[in-house]
């Protein structure tokens, strides 16, 4: 008996759950990565299943799924890619829904709390403002819409520096290379990420909704575990975790 099979045998013998336990592969948009990890831990504890999470930019994950990536569930950052997958017949029928709405937030590490963000932006006393590239990320589109609403889009455009995703945008600000930036509220809500200066939680009326879709992929059409995870995400506990991470959950 090889060591490997011995090990495998003892694991099976020691954990009765493992006979039933299943493994899920989940693709998740970068901005929701931290939250999905918290959700998976809760789910794993409840059910004994294992979840393997792959984070990345939505467009990349979409391209991978279209080309046969072995994911069971896809948490997207938008609705465009999930609708395309639905049109292409790559998802379990009827499985597409909005699991969270992102909130946009302007982080200003050098501005004390209590100062109006609109005034800071109008004054324009900074060299760079970071946002996600609107071509690559919905948060970038929302940031442009917000500035447009304030009538400052074209004035501030020369100060733009753009990250390819919301994480990179956060990095530009966190390393001091940009003086402020539009990030996901999932960052500003977390004191590990944002503990200096202040932030402005952009009202939902300033930009079109940042609806984030989830789909169960064709491969997991009949997987009870995949459905159980979706149910967990929609449960009261799941909703609480998502909201605590800086998102709104639509009813």
């Amino acid at each position: 008996m090889t060591l490997k099979s011995l090990l495998a045998a003892s694991i099976v013998a020691l954990t009765p759950m493992s006979v039933l336990a299943d493994e899920l592969k989940i693709a998740v948009a970068a901005n929701f990565l931290k939250t999905i990890e918290t959700l998976s831990q809760g789910f794993e504890k409840q059910t004994g299943n294992t979840i393997k999470v792959s984070g990345g930019p939505t467009g990349k994950l979409y391209a991978q799924i279209e080309n046969g990536a072995p994911f069971d569930i896809f948490f997207s950052a938008d609705q465009k890619s999930t609708k395309k997958l639905e049109d292409d017949g790559k998802i379990k029928a009827g499985s597409r829904f909005i699991y969270a709405q992102g909130r946009l937030s302007l982080w200003m590490p050098n501005v004390p709390a209590g100062v109006e963000a609109a005034d800071v932006l109008k004054k324009g006393d900074f060299k760079h403002i970071a946002l996600a590239n609107p071509k690559a990320a919905p948060y970038g589109v929302a940031a442009e819409q917000t500035l447009d609403k304030l009538g400052l889009l074209e004035t501030l455009r020369p100060k733009f520096v753009m990250g390819e995703n919301i994480g990179q945008t956060y990095q530009f600000v966190a390393t001091g290379n940009a003086q402020m930036g539009f990030v996901a509220h999932s960052y500003t809500v977390d004191p590990k990420h944002v503990n200096t200066g202040s932030y402005w939680l952009v009202p939902l009326s300033y930009h079109s909704p940042l609806d984030q879709d989830v789909v169960v992929l064709k491969k997991a059409e009949n997987s009870k575990t995949a459905q159980a995870f979706i149910d967990y995400v929609r449960s009261a506990e799941g909703k609480k975790i998502i909201e605590a991470s800086g998102y709104t959950v639509p009813n």
Partner: peptide, 22 residues
């Protein structure tokens, strides 16, 4: 780079953006 059009946006980034926006 910061992806500034005409200044720091290079071809590799432009291709990536196109792929990202499908």
């Amino acid at each position: 780079g910061g992806n500034i059009p005409g200044e720091t946006r290079m071809v590799s980034i432009a291709i990536f953006d196109h792929v990202e926006s499908l």
